Lab assay of single mutants.
Amino acid sequence: MFYPNSPQTSPQLTQIPYGQQYAMMQRQIQQPYHPFATTEPQARLYPYHYQGPIQQEQGGFITQQSTAASPQYVQMRVTPVDQSIMSGYPNQTANGSSSSSFNYNIHPQQQQQQQQQQQQLRHHAMPVGSVPLQDDRYRKQLIVNYLAPDVTSTDLHELFSRFGELDGARIIYDKQTNMSKGYGFVYFCHAEDAKEAVERMSGYEFHGKWLKVGYSTNPLNIVPSNSSPYVHAGSRGAAG
């Protein structure tokens, strides 16, 4: 039997160049792979992502010199942007860049009308829970959420009447099932009393439920100042 490094198959040491006398086997001759043993700084910083320098080929596509990437890492192929796409944008300079302001050559009167329309939209648009300043009635009506099913309009009136005089209180019921929808409205005579009720009743436990109280901004629920107070009856038909 002959071994790869046996004296019968191995040459004389004098015939082997210096430095390879003890590297006779194939696994010894093959050098191990060192990912950080390279002179390129990109490979030292990113050993798993770097795959060699990027070269520009004919046709405008950018390719990489090395083989496919590892399945664990996804390499994105980048193509140059066609400058003709950006030619339609206004205020574009000769080098292809555009300024931040756009001039669509709008007539001054049209621009003024658009600004007025935007101001009107901001004036009428009102986020949930906010209180408008032009109508004091919005500051007097509250919406009470997360009410228990057994709470009546009379219970709601008695709960909030300790903060001040009320114009009314009612629970909203479903017309088909005649069941409470879980929320109601309270109408105060003074805005200061309503503000105190919002601050003190939010998070209050009532009939096993934690109440959420806020201003009601729905104009359909506003009680006119010259109208008669609501009837605080315990029956659902009268309260709904």
Rank of each mutant, 00 (worst) to 15 (best):
V78K: 15
P127W: 12
Y73E: 12
Y46L: 12
Q109Y: 12
H190S: 04
F102P: 07
V78S: 14
F36S: 15
G184C: 08
R137Q: 03
N95C: 13
Q42I: 05
Y18K: 15
Q112P: 08
M201H: 01
K175V: 05
L147K: 01
Y138M: 02
P7W: 04
D155Y: 07
S130M: 04
A239S: 11
Q116S: 09
Q58P: 07
D174A: 09
N91T: 09
P35L: 03
A191K: 13
I54C: 09
Q111C: 13
T38G: 12
G164K: 01
H123C: 08
M126W: 14
L45Q: 14
S6H: 11
W210M: 02
V128R: 11
I171Y: 00
P41L: 09
K181H: 02
I106L: 09
D193V: 06
Q109I: 12
Q31M: 06
I62T: 15
T152I: 13
M76G: 15
V151T: 05
Q120W: 14
Y46D: 14
S216H: 02
F188P: 00
P132F: 08
D150E: 11
Q115H: 10
P7Y: 07
L121D: 05
L147T: 11
Q111K: 11
Y73A: 13
Q42V: 07
G129F: 06
L142V: 11
E165K: 15
S227M: 11
Y50I: 10
Q58H: 13
Q42Y: 09
H190Y: 11
S97N: 07
M126S: 04
T93G: 11
A233T: 09
G129E: 05
L156T: 01
Q72H: 11
N95I: 10
G168K: 00
Q42R: 14
A194N: 00
A23D: 09
G52C: 11
I106N: 07
Q141R: 01
N145V: 02
R27K: 12
P149A: 04
Q42A: 05
S235E: 07
Q112H: 12
L156K: 00
R139Y: 14
K175P: 03
Q12F: 05
G203T: 03
P90M: 12
L45R: 15
G88V: 05
Q120K: 14
H107Y: 12
R139V: 14
K181E: 02
A239E: 08
D174T: 03
S100A: 11
Q75E: 12
S180K: 02
W210T: 02
E165P: 10
P7L: 05
Q92A: 12
Q83S: 09
N145T: 02
Y215V: 02
V231L: 14
G237H: 12
P132A: 07
H49M: 03
V198N: 07
P53S: 11
P35D: 09
P149M: 12
Y146P: 01
G240I: 05
M24K: 15
Y50H: 15
S235F: 09
A197V: 10
Q58E: 07
V131G: 12
Y215H: 03
F61W: 03
Q8Y: 04
Y89S: 09
L156R: 00
S98P: 11
F206Y: 08
S225Q: 06
F61I: 11
P47V: 00
Q58C: 13
D174H: 05
Q51A: 08
Q118G: 11
Y183A: 02
A238K: 03
P35R: 14
G52R: 14
Y50S: 14
V131N: 11
Y138V: 02
S70V: 07
R27P: 03
I143S: 01
I222G: 02
Q31G: 08
H232C: 11
R139P: 02
V131W: 14
Y18P: 13
H157K: 10
G168A: 02
P149S: 02
Q92C: 08
Q113H: 09
F160C: 02
